[in-house]
Design a protein around this nucleic acid. Sequence first.
DNA 1: CTACCGATTGACT
DNA 2: GTCAATCGGTAGA
Length: 201
Amino acid sequence: MASSFPPLSRDFYDRPVTIVAQEVLGKLLVGKEGRRLTVGRIVEAEAYLSCGDDACHAAKGPSRKNAAMFGPPGHAYVYVIHARHCVNLVTEPTGVPSAVLVRALEPLSGLDLMHERRGTEVVLDLARGPARLCEALAIDRTLNGWDLTRGQKLWLADDPAATPFEIRTSPRIGVTSAFDLPLRFYVAGNRFVSKLKRGEF
DNA sequence: CTACCGATTGACT
DNA sequence: GTCAATCGGTAGA
């Protein structure tokens, strides 16, 4: 393997969720199934807050489904919605239920495998959208609670080829409450960001 | 047990 | 632009 993609440490996740949601932009999300790697650059993410955020799955207290959000930072919270998977990165200290939803990736490596899993030849559709990227990286609920600092199956890594970019902010996509909070962050000018409207770039 | 819902997607007008 | 399929989680009978 040309690059080993060392995983980000737990310290990266053990910070305020709105900070992490912006700092994950430009990081690499690495999926490993057996010996096969799929890698994408995170270009869009949303923060879900532990307090005052009705759209957060933890807003009504702990349950079997959201237990991972109450656990230690640096673990995955995977849930199912509309028969599709979405992945979050748990942030802040144990007991503080906040997380970053990864909404879109720019595919970098393992494109053949992503095409195979997604059933499309369109590169733009491989990982643009929270459920699409999960399908592209084979993320399902067996990875709920997975420790992202292990460097196995699923983790985050720095991009050795990172270049500066501008961060844009907007309300979150699809939420049915707290839709006024500006907690969605994305890389300006990147085509792999989901749900771009006319005039946004 | 049944009923309803959603941090979505893809097909269609 | 609109709309319905999809299915695990959750609430309620």
